[in-house]
Amino acid sequence: MLAKRVIACLDVKDGRVVKGIQFLDLRDAGDPAELAAAYNREGVDEVIFLDITASAEKRALIVETVARTARQVFIPLAVGGGIRSVADARGILLSGADKVSVNTAAVENPVLITQLSEEFGSQAVVLAIDARRNGDSWSVYTYGGRKLTDRNAIEWAAEGESLGAGEILLTSMDCDGTQNGFDCALTKAISRAVMIPVIASGGAGNAEHFAQVLTEGEADAALAASIFHYGTVRVSDLKRHLRSQGITVRL
């Protein structure tokens, strides 16, 4: 049976991890490759690098970072942040990443999703959606949550699927950073609107939150960053908890 996935997200800036793992004894807690390897040993199913490099001249560093990571870590690797064209995506995918995730660029230029999917296959294209509740619906935000768009999150997810996205990475801005649990209502609504996998993100605080979003929220995968980095929740413990709840995971 297809396992539910646990995904670790690492913020990478100028080729270095921001907020690196603090509870494991690593030689270099700022090295993306070493952190990805540590999470692999912990049993994480996938790693996402979120590239938050601001300066244009340092953007190429992510390609080198991916190449170095992919030489030593043999699990799926996705990269998001700053990918605005097929050429950007090609550099990242040909250096050993399996997927690219697009967010703002896809909202502003939806045909990018189709171009990426035709070029690399839909399995390589993740549509990242930042959503916040707005009355009785959820709105899409861009530019890292700073800009409200006129798009409805559920409709955008469905449109993204029809344009060729192979997966939705859904971040609840209402829950993000709270550690009070994922947004199960939002995740369930999106998961029912599409026939591609949905990754829930934002709000993870403990193992039970993962269990909730993977069952009630109908998510196919759940992502977290800081609780893994600080060791609040260990991936290996989390997976054992999920299995004890009857959820299929890779152990």
């Binding site: 049976m1 297809l2 396992a3 996935r5 199913d45 839909s122 399995q123 192979g166 997966e167 026939m195 591609i196 996998p197 196919d220 995968a221 890779r250």
Partner: peptide, 13 residues
């Protein structure tokens, strides 16, 4: 066939 999430993506046995 329709009714399954496609791509079949992730870890399976």
């Amino acid at each position: 066939t329709p009714g399954l999430k496609v791509p079949h993506m992730g870890w399976n046995q």
